[in-house]
Computed example of a mutant assay.
Amino acid sequence: MLMLKNNIADTIREKALWMRRRAFTMVFDAQLGHPGGDFSAIDIVATLYFGVMRYDPTKPDLAERDRFIMSKGHATGALYTALCAAGYYPEDWLTTYMQPNSRLNGHPNRNYLPGVETNTGPLGHGMPVALGIAIAGQITSSDYRTFVLTGDGELQEGSNWEAAMTAGHRRLGNLTLIVDRNRLQQGMGTEETNGLDPLDEKFRAFGWDVEIVDGHDIQALLDVLAAAPGGRSRPLCIIANTVKGKGVSFMENKASWHHGVPNAEQFETAMKELV
């Protein structure tokens, strides 16, 4: 069993590396995007799609599918590469990223792309939508799971806390929130802008179970995300400690790479590091 888990983790690492290289290429070609946030989230998204979630890319609206909502909708490089690698659409679609008439907008749109559960971009919207989806599953006694990924800066939006309070009250064991805790947002650190700590205690006070993990440790992510919700009577918040720009030395922990774009020299350096 341990060998099987390690093999899955290795596969996810390979997928995550491909996603980083492809996402950075998309941003370089378009000269638009949010690579810092893409790279802090990619290991989480890869683990969900290639080690945890139940879905069928040939049937995007399958009733039994698990649902994933990328609430930090600017991290399209992470989401689009995952959907492509999962088989929702061909790789050549990625070359159209942010081009005129492309399906791959700067923020995900479910009207254009299979596999996108809801349109996101304005921060603070994904969590309330995930709440509604989880409530629907609870009412209908469905066994699908609902996962939502938020940025930590995004938690400054009050709508998230209204949703968190309701989820705790309804004891939504089918709902998992992952917080991409890279501690940076556009311009500066989250704690300089509007402090979140102690974040774990806040969620526990709202009636959630809380796990804290290294958001780049694939095996740790697998262990906490793959746990079946059967018997869980409380929603789960996973605080994933991450590094903005993870994997590229000149991007790591730099707020400027929230929406920075590489020049040709930086692109070549990144490609040499992403091996």
Rank of each mutant, 00 (worst) to 15 (best):
L4N: 12
N7S: 14
I8L: 07
D10A: 15
T11V: 12
I12K: 02
K15V: 15
L17W: 07
L17F: 15
W18H: 14
W18Y: 14
M19A: 04
M19H: 08
M19T: 14
T25E: 08
T25P: 01
M26Y: 02
V27I: 13
D29Q: 15
D29G: 10
Q31P: 14
G37H: 06
S40Y: 01
D43Y: 03
V45A: 05
A46H: 05
T47G: 03
T47I: 11
T47F: 12
L48G: 07
G51E: 06
V52Q: 12
D56G: 06
D56F: 03
P57V: 04
T58F: 08
E64M: 01
R67K: 15
R67D: 05
A75K: 11
G77E: 03
A78F: 14
Y80E: 04
T81F: 07
A82Y: 04
A85D: 08
A86V: 00
P90V: 06
W93T: 09
Y97Q: 10
S102V: 15
P108N: 12
R110H: 15
G121Y: 02
H125T: 06
G126R: 01
P128N: 01
I139L: 09
T146A: 11
V148M: 00
G151R: 00
L155G: 06
L155R: 00
S159K: 11
S159T: 04
W161H: 09
A163I: 01
G168W: 09
G168Y: 07
R171E: 04
L172K: 03
G173P: 08
N174I: 06
L177E: 10
V179P: 03
D180Q: 03
R181I: 10
R183N: 13
R183P: 08
L184A: 09
L184I: 01
L184N: 09
G189Q: 05
G189P: 00
E191R: 03
E192H: 11
G195R: 10
P198I: 04
E201A: 11
E201C: 06
F203N: 00
A205L: 11
F206A: 09
G207Q: 08
H216I: 10
D217A: 02
Q219S: 10
V224N: 07
A228Y: 04
P229E: 08
C237E: 06
A240H: 03
T242L: 05
S249F: 14
M251E: 01
E252T: 01
N253T: 08
A255S: 10
S256R: 08
H258R: 04
H258Y: 06
H258P: 12
G260E: 07
V261Y: 00
V261W: 02
F267T: 00
E268W: 08
E268G: 08
E268Q: 13
T269L: 14
A270H: 02
K272Q: 15
